[in-house]
């Protein structure tokens, strides 16, 4: 039913987007927490840097990554000598989509941290729980809804990533050619309309999939809310 190259592109897209989200999320949590709770020198700079991928053309981000990782630069040379330079591999595609998804994840998580009532952290302190423990046991669980929506948003953004990926990772079938890139190639080749149409339909799978997951998570949460509302009711009627 599906051509091997289609399955390959779909699998690669998943691999790239899952990696980008899984690696990006913890970093986004850390950055969001720092931005939400700490005052430090250069905070404005960090905020700007984090949000750059949202406002500059993705191709520029891809180009910047390319320059950053070229063997002529410090990081690139060091990675090349270690045999780890990611340019033109699926890892490059994951880095490109991760960078593009990062600001969306940070924003969503930061909102959750900002919304936490200050009293919870203060009570934790009076109970002798502070620092990382306080973050781990109070702030992180309370921000859980923000984290799931960050993951869904980030995944959706990563799987649709095109400009930064094609610039940094190139469009190599089977290696860096994710669904959007394959679709682009098909649409560019004469007589590729059918293939492009099929790829477009295929792209719906991860998109609809992430929407369904988001919906399921939200439903589960409101179920909990309903249960607790019912609990309250039974307490009252029990009196």
């Amino acid at each position: 039913m599906l051509e091997p190259f289609e399955i390959e592109a779909l699998a690669l897209s998943f691999k790239v987007a899952v990696t980008a989200t899984a690696v990006g999320l913890p970093i986004a949590v850390w950055v969001a927490y720092k931005l939400s709770r700490s005052q430090f020198r250069g905070k404005f700079l960090v905020e700007t840097l984090v949000h750059i991928p949202l406002v500059v053309p993705p191709v520029v981000v891809g180009f910047a990554l390319l320059v950053l990782f070229t063997p002529l630069s410090g990081i690139g040379r060091w990675l090349s000598e270690a045999g780890l330079n990611p340019a033109f591999t699926w890892v490059a595609a994951a880095i490109a989509s991760g960078v593009m998804a990062f600001p969306l994840m940070v924003r969503s998580i930061r909102q959750a941290f900002d919304a936490e009532p200050i009293e919870y952290g203060e009570v934790a302190q009076t109970l002798g729980v502070d620092g990382f423990k306080r973050f781990w046991r109070v702030s992180l669980p309370l921000a859980a809804p923000g984290l799931t929506s960050a993951a869904v948003l980030g995944f959706a953004r990563a799987i649709g990533e095109f400009g930064a990926t094609i610039t940094f990772a190139a469009n190599i079938p089977g290696l860096t050619q994710t669904l959007p890139l394959a679709l682009y190639s098909a649409a560019q080749s004469p007589g590729g309309e059918i293939a492009a149409f099929r790829l477009a339909l295929l792209s719906l799978i991860p998109a609809v999939g992430s929407l369904l997951v988001a919906e399921w998570l939200q439903r589960r949460r409101s179920d909990v809310g309903r249960r607790s509302a019912m609990g309250r009711q039974s307490v009252k009627s029990g009196r």
């Binding site: 009532p117 919870y120 203060e122 009570v123 302190q125 002798g128 309370l142």
Partner: peptide, 18 residues
Amino acid sequence: AAERNIGLVMQQSALFPH
């Protein structure tokens, strides 16, 4: 505060909802 060992019950109570 975390090292003073003084308990405080705030007006809001602030029970951890999770």
